[in-house]
Every structure is written in structure tokens, then in C-alpha cells.
Design a protein around this nucleic acid. Structure first.
Lengths: 352, 352
DNA sequence: CTGAAAGCGCTTACAG
DNA sequence: CTGAAAGCGCTTACAG
């Protein structure tokens, strides 16, 4: 009905989108040759390739991914599966993954889920199999669940997992080296003169807690400091658990002068507890967090925190997954190691 | 190589996934009839339908979306296009959209973009056309860009836009009624006894600013208060612009006793400025924000803020889009209006 | 209410 | 290095 007013790039044969047949006809070659050009098969004669590429450009041809998927046996889609509760983490990761997919014609399908759901495995299987995803990326803590990994292996789905330590072969992992960031935090507090330093962990089932804890304790040890078991506590990675643990720690007969919380939510909870107890921050208590949420730069005093290059990690994960999917050895990518960095702000200061 | 150890639901004819042909054969009907059952065509005889459904269940058959897409002319994918900088907003919206897609076999493909990019339109066109998306959802402020809407119309792509006011026919809109939330904020501050109340807006080009501003000014007027032009300022929806405007407002000869910032980032910036000027909060200044970010409940004093039911809005958007795509009249959905709500905390108190 | 044929736009064998 | 045939798993006309 509508006039052909769509300002499409190039001619519009018959009012519909050009197909591989239109290109083949325009370039005077078989559709198979066009297919070879699309799929970057090396054996096509340069002249022929040039002819086809010109026709593709002139017609504004873009291969139909559904048709390719059907013939190919799998979709040009990557899945992102996670139950990570941090919006900042998730969004940064999505951006990074899309950075890695740019120009490949692949798109990103998101799939948040609840780790505790009884139907978790069936749901993931359904998600992957129905759309015939080319591969999936798993975020922590879901990436630590070996049941999920076993499922993906059994259905032949390529994956890359992101986790605080190497849980898998390098080609299937982006390891975030959380211990390095935690060590930096420990080193920083020790250099500021603190000796009574508390560690507020997250849920013990999260691998990140163990890894970060080890890094922190190791750094203290390098300064001759042993973590007092009374100052080593489990939290729940929530603001409320930070408030609670903060009160408990500060109520001790010999309270800490500094607290390292394994995420920012808890660190900010600790700050709130300190304020509720009449302490002045940062004078009476130094606090360091982990994650460097946007909030860290907004609270008062601004929170010193460990930052992970989430977006870069996402890009690396996408690149690794693409390599696997395309049959390239991910080891050939030669990606740099992920380096957490301590962002210095005002919440941790030298002991007087 | 591997033994058939995959615990698939039902038999596995020939070691591959069952197709519509397997179902047709098992149920002793034509594949066209199976197709009718899959697509819920009403005219299938109940007996036949039951026979087919049993075969589907026994074989664990799930139609291949790529094949359906190819024959159907469009994918079973919805796109989410946005340049919204708030991770919380984006993630909540994604969850809501997925709530609305559950059980439909549709998946969500995400596409963040930069509004200012010169290639924006070409990029969106590429995204939509290449994957042959069934439809897209647009978040503010991108949803306010009529160039994008014109493009989508020209390529025949169904869309639903989310915006602070009705910019389109109801079937293509989820209107967030921001004026109601802003009015509640104004009413609240007036009832607390404030008369010198400032309004800190965002970028004037954002429709949300105009809409929220109107709602707020109207509510003040209902209490006989006229907004002093000196207390009506534009910000940039950033923390830094909040700090700056806070200083400017508090440096006035006759400073406000309360400030309503049109988002939380600016509201928290205002609080920081107040603290930098030696004011005690909330005693010396009441502040109200908009968005109810997680941060709002973490800062000190906790920020009173307007909350939008983002996730519900996402679900409504998905339902509307599905209705359009399936040729149903979205008006038949009878969805409730979106109601912003003021979340009362400690940052706004009565004037002594 | 049901079905046989043709087609959606690609790719995988298989020739040459 | 290139191509004609068959097929991926569905759906749309079109019959009956």
C-alpha cells in the first residue's frame, strides 16, 4: 500500500529485500559462490569475490540470519545467563559482550534466572535448545554451579564462564583475579598503619569470598599482620548484613580501626552502623569495599573500593566464545589478564 | 562419540531432535495439522488436537524457531533499544519484559546505543532488519526521538515506547505518568510546611523534565505556592550537576528550605553540596529525588524519592507489543495506568 | 476440518 | 576454484 519511500541502501528488486539469489543473478555467479563470499571461504578467486562483493554492496544485501541458522544448525545468537543481583555489573557486562560481538552479526539474548529455582536446569536447557544458541556466557555465582556446566556439556553448548578463579580450561573462562584486588586493599590498609583490621566476607558458598579472603589475608601476612578470627565474619553481600556485622565488630572490646568488606553494599552498611554508633568517618574507622559501584563515589565519605574491569571482561568473554564457536583456538587470542584496581577515595585514611 | 546420556524428555528418534515430521508420523496426521496445533489454530478437531499434543509431549518436540521465522518472515525475538544511562532502570525493565514474554517462546535481544551517534538510525535499522525482529521496545529518552519512530514505521517494525507522557497511540505506548509522582513530591513538601521550594530539573530536551516540572508546579499551586523563577534551575541529571546547582541555590540570599531534584543522582549531589556548606541534613534542608535508586536507601539521610514501577512497565510493554505482533488489539488488554509513588524516608522533614 | 505441494533463504554434501 | 541438487524445519497459499 505504502509508496516505496523507505530510503534503503541500494536498489530494491521487486519491493522486497534482496536475497542471495538476487546477488547471484546480479554478479552472474551461482548462489553457492555468493555463500562462499558471505562465509569468507578463502578459496574464492579474487576477481569473483570482488564481483560478488560489488553486487552485495549495490543491492544492500544482508544475509538472512534465520535462513543461515536453519541451514547451519545453530542461531547467530549468544545467550547471557545469570542470577547476579547487581544491575551495574549486569549492564556493564552486557555492554562488554556487545563490544565483542560488534561487526560479527551476532546478537545478545539475555536470560536472568533464579539460582535457587527448582526448574533452573530445565529452564536453561529450554532456553539454549529452543533458540539453538551458538553459545552462552555465565556470570558468577551461577558460573560456579557445576550442574549447569554439566548440562551445557551434555547438550553440546559452548560456554564461557566468568568467575573469581580458574574453574575450567582457559578457553572457557574469564578469570577475574579477585585475589589481586583484595590483596591491594589489604596492603593499602596495612600501609596506612592499621593493625586491627576486620574482614567482612559474603556468603561462604560464593567462590569470590574465598578467593578475595585469601588475597586479603595474604597481603596482611606480608606486613606481619595475622587476621584475628574475631575480626573475620561472614555477611550476605547485602547492605543490611553490613549494618549488622558493622555493629557487631564495633561493639567488640577491642574493635577494629579498619574494615574491608567484600562488596560495596556491605561496606556502606558498615559505614551506616558506624554512624549509628556515633563514630565520625573516616576519622574513627576506615572502610574499604569491593565492586566500585556508582554509589561508592556518592556516599559520604566517598568509598575506597576495588574495581573490576567488567566491561573489558565482557568483551574478552565474547571474543573467547566466538573463537570456540568458530572453531578457532581461544588460546590464540592472547588476551591480557584481568587486573582489579583499588580506587582510592576518602573512606580509608592513615591511623593517627 | 559420546553415549546418548543426555537425559532428554522423551524418545530421541535417530539421535537428533524431533521435527514436525516426526510428530506428524507419530500422530498419523499431516505436518500441516501439527503446524496448526503449534500455532493454536482454532479449527482443528479436538480429537486430532489431542492426538497431536500427545505425540508432541511424547517426543519432547519443540518447534525450531529459526525454521518458523524463515517461513513466517520474522523472528521470535523482541528487541530492547535504549540509551538510558541508569543500570537499575535498564535491568528492571529487562526483567519486566521477560516477565511479559514468559511462555511465549519469544526471547529478548538487547541493543544499547548512543543517542548522539551519527549512525544511530542506520544502526537501529540494521539491528531490526537483519534479525527481522518481531518488534522493539524503546526506553526514554530514545523513545522521544521521532526520527527513530519514523524509521521504524517506514520499515514496518512494530514498537512500543515507554515515556513520561502519551506521545503516541495507546497501543504503542506505556505512559509512566511522571507528573503524578512529581505532584506527590510537591504536595508532600508543601504539607511539611515548606514555602521556599526549589526545583532542579534535568536537561530541557528530556520530556520527563517538562512533565515532572508541570506536575510539581501544579501541586505547589494547589497549596497557593508559586515557584520562584530563581529557584527553578536546569541540571544535567548527573551527580555533579546536582552538586553545582545545590551550591548555587544554597548561596542565594534567600535560599530554599527544600529542593526537589528530578532524579536521585542530582538529589544526592544536592545533599553533598549542602554538607560541603556546613548544613546539617535533613534539619537545614529537605531534599526529595526521583527514581528511587538502590542508592536512595543507602545514603545518609535516606532519600525520599519517587518510585516508578519499572518492572511492571516492562511487562506491560511486552504484552502490548505481543498483542500488536499477533494482530490482537492492544486496547483489549485493559492494563492499569502506571502509578508513580513517593517513597517516604528521612531526607525531607517538616519545617520547624 | 485436513492435506499435498511449493516455498521461505540459506548451507551441506557431492561433482567436476 | 565453481556449481546444480537436495535439504534444513517450518509455513503459506491452494485444494478438497
Amino acid at each position: 500500500m505504502a509508496a516505496p519511500s523507505t530510503d534503503s541502501t541500494g536498489p530494491d528488486p521487486g519491493g522486497r529485500r534482496p536475497t542471495i539469489n538476487d546477488v547471484a543473478h546480479a554478479a552472474q555467479v551461482s548462489k553457492k559462490t555468493v555463500s562462499r563470499v558471505i562465509n569468507q571461504v578463502a578459496t574464492v578467486h579474487p576477481d569473483m569475490r570482488a564481483r560478488v562483493e560489488r553486487a552485495i554492496a549495490e543491492l544492500g544485501f544482508r544475509p538472512n540470519p534465520q535462513a543461515r541458522s536453519l541451514a547451519f544448525g545453530r542461531a547467530f545468537l549468544l545467550g547471557l545467563i545469570y542470577d547476579n543481583p547487581s544491575p551495574t555489573y549486569v549492564v556493564n557486562m552486557q555492554h562488554g559482550l556487545l563490544d565483542g560481538l560488534r561487526g560479527t552479526g551476532m546478537e545478545l539474548v539475555v536470560h536472568p534466572c533464579r539460582h535457587a529455582a527448582p526448574t533452573l536446569l530445565e529452564e536453561i536447557r529450554e532456553f539454549v535448545e529452543r533458540q539453538r544458541l551458538a553459545g552462552v556466557v555465565l556470570l558468577p555465582p551461577l558460573s560456579e554451579d557445576e550442574r549447569v556446566i554439566a548440562l551445557l556439556r551434555s547438550i553440546g553448548c559452548s560456554y564461557v564462564r566468568i568467575a573469581a578463579l580458574a574453574l575450567d580450561e582457559p578457553g572457557s573462562m574469564v578469570t577475574t583475579n579477585d585475589h589481586l584486588g583484595a590483596a591491594e586493599a589489604g596492603d593499602h590498609l596495612a600501609r596506612l598503619g592499621h593493625r586491627r583490621i576486620a574482614l567482612l566476607r559474603g556468603p561462604p558458598s560464593f567462590r569470590s569470598c574465598t578467593v578475595r579472603g585469601h588475597g586479603f589475608i595474604g597481603a596482611l601476612a606480608a606486613h606481619g599482620i595475622t587476621l584475628d578470627p574475631a575480626l573475620d565474619r561472614d555477611g550476605a553481600y547485602t547492605f543490611e548484613s553490613g549494618v549488622e556485622a558493622g555493629h557487631a565488630l564495633l561493639a567488640l572490646a577491642d574493635p577494629p580501626t579498619a574494615i574491608f568488606a567484600l562488596n560495596d553494599d556491605m561496606a556502606i552498611g558498615v559505614m551506616q552502623a558506624a554512624r549509628e554508633r556515633g563514630l565520625e568517618l573516616p576519622r574513627d574507622l576506615s572502610v574499604v569495599g569491593f565492586d566500585d559501584l556508582p554509589m561508592a563515589a556518592r556516599v559520604w565519605p566517598n568509598l575506597t573500593s576495588v574495581r573490576l574491569p567488567i566491561r573489558d571482561m565482557g568483551q574478552m568473554a565474547a571474543e573467547k566464545l566466538l573463537a570456540r564457536v568458530n572453531g578457532v583456538d581461544p588460546a590464540a587470542l592472547d588476551q591480557p589478564a584481568v587486573c582489579p584496581a583499588l580506587v582510592l577515595r576518602q573512606s580509608a585514611i592513615a591511623l593517627p
